[in-house]
Design a binder for these strands. Structure first.
Lengths: 226, 226
DNA sequence: TTATAGTATATTGGATCCAATTTAGTATAG
DNA sequence: CTATACTAAATTGGATCCAATATACTATAA
């Protein structure tokens, strides 16, 4: 019957199958960095965790594979995908290209509600003391800025790209300097949006993402040398 | 043991599972337009076609769903995804943005082999009389131009975007004017690449995709009015 | 002691079976 | 004749079972 309930603005479709639930949970665990890269995901252990058979687990894993979040080897299993610095750098470069465009489209169309929403997340991000929440608030802030772009496909792609590097972004945010810089960047971007200064919002978004990527690469190289 | 055989430049990994084979076949059928949009795909009929059970079919369908090529409704089945003109227009706009960049990166790095390959496909495209082959040659030509970009992630995204609109592009190519225009565009782009004129190659690629998108939208609107 | 062969266990891929739900079809009431 | 309620068939989602393969372990030989 596809009944739905709308709760706190979150739309929970009751048509979700077990496989969907498992997909969401695994995706969440991966992008949050709760599973180490290279770690193999055992079908049986996931199945036990959710008290189901391996069938829906396997379907969830196929979807994660299609999204590039895990890689699979026949008769061996799937492992959490790991990315080389150059792969990460490429994704950040791509994000600069696409998210800049999305902001450009969004700024002129941005509703007062979206601006307020973004402002709220920006403040919450700046005030949040629990590092575990920074990643969420960071994404919520950017999503709020993008939502009025009128470009659902771009947003889908942006989400997918962000999923792949999310774990590294979070590691970067945990560095206090990374966090401080992100906070300043966010405030500047938000101000440009309030002023409907598309050009400025685009440039600030581009450099925000670019700089985050550069810092992240430096961080990863430092860590690999140690 | 992951043995592989390399045949005519195509790398056939023998590690492919049944589910992979089915995924490839269905994806191919969908993007070639061999299945009507909105058509529901019955698990059992696909399973019979490949003489297997529904299990690998379901896994293949999950992957297609993650790629956006089909949409699924619980207990009803999956249907071949259909796109509205505005969704198609968005993808073409996106392709202009991303593929232009890819060409820019590729032109300077393009090897003589890639140039010859592109030339070969360009000529084959121009001379091919069987419309069913135009779509393949069109994609092979563009892929040849992109392959030296050094941006595997961009290429992944470009492929995914093209998959979604491929069926419509083919319909457009079938219009003789569409084909004639594509041929001229290809030759001009190729010439710019041979001359290492990145700026020109970028501009030509952008307008090539842009114009194809515009023509396609007009075509679809005409057809819907009739 | 170490390397190798062989066996046992663990794990994945696929087939078959059952449950939940939808869809098609039929009968009945108005 | 049409609309509705009921039943049967078709279809999907999930569980359990079996086959194929990989990994871990053990024993044996040098």
């Amino acid at each position: 019957m596809a009944s739905e309930l709308n709760l706190k603005g979150v739309n929970l479709s009751l048509t979700a199958s077990t496989s969907d639930v498992i997909y969401d949970a695994l995706r969440d665990a991966i992008i949050r960095g709760e599973m180490a890269e290279g770690e193999t995901i055992r079908q049986e252990s996931v199945a036990k965790l959710f008290s189901v058979s391996r069938i829906p687990v396997r379907e969830a894993l196929k979807r994660l594979e299609a999204q590039g979040l895990v890689t699979s080897v026949r008769y061996k299993g799937v492992v959490v995908a790991s990315m080389s610095p150059s792969e990460i750098a490429e994704i950040f470069e791509f994000r600069v290209l696409v998210e800049s465009k999305v902001v450009e489209y969004a700024v002129e169309a941005m509703t007062p509600e979206s601006l307020e929403l973004a402002k709220g997340y920006c403040e919450a991000f700046a005030e949040e003391t629990n590092p575990a929440r920074w990643g969420d608030l960071n994404r919520l802030f950017h999503s709020a800025l993008y939502r009025d772009s009128g470009r659902p496909y771009y947003l889908e792609i942006v989400q997918s790209a962000n999923d792949r590097v999310e774990r590294y972004v979070r590691a970067q945010l945990d560095l206090t300097e990374g966090m401080a810089r992100a906070r300043r960047d966010h405030e500047a971007i938000l101000e440009a949006c309030f002023k409907r200064d598309a050009r400025k919002a685009v440039n600030l978004t581009a450099s925000h993402i670019h700089n985050a990527g550069q810092a992240l690469i430096r961080f990863l190289q430092k860590r690999s040398e140690a």
